[in-house]
Write a protein that binds this DNA or RNA. Sequence first.
DNA 1: CCGGTTTACTAAATCGGTTTAGTAAATGAA
DNA 2: TTCATTTACTAAACCGATTTAGTAAACCGG
Lengths: 336, 336
Amino acid sequence: MGKTTMADVAKKAGVSKSTVSQFLNERYEYMSPDTRIRIEAAIDELNYQPNYLARSLKQKRTSTVGIIVANIMHQFSTEVSRSVEDYFNKHNMHAIVCNADNDPEKEKKYIEMLRAKQVDGLIIFPTAQNADIYKNMIKEEYPVVFMDRKVPDLQAPTVVSQNIEATYSAIQHFIDNGHERIAIATEPLTISPRIERHEGYKKALHANGIKINPEFQISTSIDKIKKELDRLFQLDAPPTAILAGNDIVFIEVLEFAKEKKLEVGESFALVVFDNIPFAHFVHPPVTTIAQSAYMMGEKAADLLLKQINKEQIDRHEVSFPCELIIRDSSKRLKEK
Amino acid sequence: MGKTTMADVAKKAGVSKSTVSQFLNERYEYMSPDTRIRIEAAIDELNYQPNYLARSLKQKRTSTVGIIVANIMHQFSTEVSRSVEDYFNKHNMHAIVCNADNDPEKEKKYIEMLRAKQVDGLIIFPTAQNADIYKNMIKEEYPVVFMDRKVPDLQAPTVVSQNIEATYSAIQHFIDNGHERIAIATEPLTISPRIERHEGYKKALHANGIKINPEFQISTSIDKIKKELDRLFQLDAPPTAILAGNDIVFIEVLEFAKEKKLEVGESFALVVFDNIPFAHFVHPPVTTIAQSAYMMGEKAADLLLKQINKEQIDRHEVSFPCELIIRDSSKRLKEK
DNA sequence: CCGGTTTACTAAATCGGTTTAGTAAATGAA
DNA sequence: TTCATTTACTAAACCGATTTAGTAAACCGG
């Protein structure tokens, strides 16, 4: 015998399916107290659980949204996802998180899958490699919000960090502490945050009259970061300070330091873009640039829900400031 | 104008819905090559995407399973989830991860939500507080696999670690390194892994003829761990070694050490139950007990899929060994 | 006590697919 | 040439809800 359906409840309570449906949707005006009690009893007795699929099919809404993160290993993605989930739970909706693993193919697959499942909207950390798909969603007016990364040539609601300003202030902090040979290491410049972080870097050096040394700008894939760092430290004048472009690059820097027996904070100063949960346990405690992950998640969720509810919203970027949290790894330069 | 449906495609291709459905399900024997091409063209032209809700409603399967983790902050849960996802993706199915946040109410809500969404089965890290619900699912023969924690009095497929043996070997390692005053710290003894870890602890001490000191057994909520540790270290004979019962307790131990200016590995030896991603960056590198997360995920997924496919499976526990990874934090005892 | 309103319902259509049973035309064997 | 089989489809029922339009009975004011 299959699961109990609304029809079973209706029969048991001696009413029609319609009335049971009204009951479930709490439209009690449409029935007598007596009927209401009988339906309640029947539901109880049969241990009836409604089938959301059927409901969603008819209502054309699933009360579910999708989140596609580019890389679940980033602390930032996790924090944003959590925030989005909280927001939607408050609004009696659900959020499904998928990990595109930085792979445009996977991203595409997930977008298609989630849309086939009829989720009401998507928050995407875009790989930015699926321009046609993004464009199409916008054209169809399917509810989407982009997060963290701007998609070129696309007028779409996007929530980002103020990367240029944040990087600028980190570099300024280095300079204020006497550093001049400052390096930056990020993954390849394929997405806007990385490009902007390099931009902020150059701007700060320039504003302080420090000549930009292209050798000090690393932008390569994770597996090559250590090799590049090695190259830097072979120079006659190696960097005295490094900005690690995100938490994953940070790990590489740590491993590099360990292998080469360099002391973070002693051999070179370090600032990391991104919050590190272990920031004050690693030795020494590391200076970080914290993004407003929770607020950004809320904002994105809010923009998405407004679209779902057919409210008008601005179709461009909203940016959030970052906070430089100074710990021991970026102390004043000792020797010149 | 709404989304394109199968009916639109059928009309455009000049065939019936049935034939389009056959096409989508790749049952090409049922149509001429000519028809096939016309349907293909129509789908393309209309940019048609099938609606999974409708399909699932009729087929009574969603090709989706749910994973309910007790606490997403545990590295172990994340690894297992990832493994389960990989497994189901290989089988053309999807996995949805939900976080019960150690809250039985949330767990209940998620079980109900996922079942209402008609997921084909569930993998649960149970809070063990919803016995009636678990029992009911087993009785209904709804596909479920429990993970990490045994539910008392329930004959259900369950995948767990060999906690007693693993803890035993960690304590033996301490003893072999000259420690006798060994403490264990876990969260409250409400679920089987914690109980078993205390059990393995006692067994190892007993086997080595060391008297068990109940004061050295901490089992309290996270926010009280530090207070208890403080109590321990106020003793005339404080512990020289500590086993942290999981990665979250580990953080507390680290914070405690930091606050009290104690040196991990010097002031006391430390082993952590659970893999720590930063294990070799914290100072000193910390000895851990690694669970076979990936294999456990695969096994659970396999047991679940078999149930979904109505294959017969054993309705009891499968246990996996752990590995003691010795690093610097559990070095030989120096002073007596 | 008559016509209109309110109350308390129900029947049937609908959502967008899948699936079953059936059919007309073409092919093939005797 | 005729009957059986195969080929290439289609109509309609179905999955389990929601929702719209409709109705019978009770109520009610004049």
